[in-house]
Amino acid sequence: MKNEFGFFKKFFSNSVNKKDKLIITIDREHGSGGFEIASIIGKRLNIPVYDEDVIELKMLESSINPENIKKDDSFLQGTIQDLYRENYSYSQEDITNIDASFLANSKTIRDLAKQGSCILLGKCANYVLKGHEKTFDVFICADREYKIKRLMRVNKVDEEKAISHMKKKDNRRKNHYNKFSGGNWGCANEYDLCINSSSIDNEFIADLIIKTSTKKE
């Protein structure tokens, strides 16, 4: 497998240039190593990685206030309105705090994608960018025992806490995705590539994602 790594690294060393925008979205099960894999890809291609926390921070930095979205109808007059209208009958009174936060994050995601190549984790990024940016959408899962052991090792917690954190995170991600996309989180037909990271080295997975993403038509 080391020889394969070497081949991939050589093959992709100059595969993404400034003219070719590459947007990779990644959804992942908690404990599957998705963020680590995204970070490897980011370093390989020298492009930024934005996870949920960074997207929230970028939203705050851009002064998009979810509270104002409910009061300001002009916010929904651009391309952002279809995200709400696709699954809800739109009226200003219908927008809840959760909906407003989703719309604000969605605008931030689109703004980040317009800036250039990047990797976006979570926040329904594959759905948000559908029809607006060419993306390569990935879902990373892993076997239950692998995730538990990894969370115990990385977070230095016992098995009970690892299981609890895993269930809470995955339920939150699933509910958020299903609510706003109208899709099915983790279902293969939502993504271009689904990978089980349990028995494959993260370096190899990262290079596999790079290879397949650059081949998407």
Rank of each mutant, 00 (worst) to 15 (best):
K147T: 05
V154Q: 08
A162F: 08
E160V: 14
K130G: 01
T96V: 11
L112R: 00
A162W: 12
S106W: 07
K169H: 14
E145M: 12
K130F: 03
F136V: 00
C118E: 02
R173D: 10
L151K: 05
F139N: 02
K114P: 11
S89N: 11
K149Y: 12
H165V: 08
I119T: 01
K156M: 14
V154C: 04
S106H: 02
N126A: 05
C118Q: 01
I163Y: 09
M152Q: 15
I119C: 00
K156Q: 13
G116Y: 03
Y127I: 08
D137T: 04
E160C: 09
L129Y: 02
I109F: 03
I140F: 02
K169T: 12
M166A: 11
E133P: 01
A113W: 04
D94F: 09
A142V: 13
Q115C: 11
C141A: 14
A125D: 01
V128R: 00
D111C: 07
A142R: 05
S101Q: 07
R144K: 14
E93V: 11
K147G: 08
V128L: 03
M166E: 14
M166Q: 12
T108A: 07
D94G: 12
L83W: 03
I119P: 00
K123Q: 03
K169A: 03
N97W: 08
A113C: 09
F136T: 02
K147S: 14
S101L: 13
R144Q: 12
E93Y: 05
Y146K: 13
C141D: 10
H132C: 10
L112G: 04
L83T: 03
Y84C: 03
R173K: 04
N155G: 06
E159S: 15
G122K: 05
S117R: 00
K134E: 10
N126D: 12
M166P: 12
I98V: 09
V157P: 10
N126L: 05
T108C: 07
K107W: 05
C124P: 01
N155L: 14
K169S: 15
T96G: 07
K174H: 14
G131E: 08
R110K: 13
Y90A: 06
I98W: 10
H132G: 06
N126H: 10
D143R: 07
T108G: 04
S164Y: 11
N87W: 06
L83Q: 02
I148M: 09
G122A: 04
E160L: 14
I140P: 00
K168S: 15
R173L: 09
Y90M: 05
K114Y: 10
E133I: 06
Y84T: 03
Y146N: 13
N155C: 12
E133R: 01
E159P: 13
D111G: 07
R144W: 13
E159N: 13
C124V: 09
D137N: 11
T96R: 09
Q92Y: 03
R144E: 15
H165Q: 15
I95S: 04
S89G: 06
D94E: 11
E145T: 12
D137I: 04
L103T: 00
N155T: 09
N97I: 10
H132P: 03
K168A: 14
N155H: 15
Q92V: 05
N155K: 15
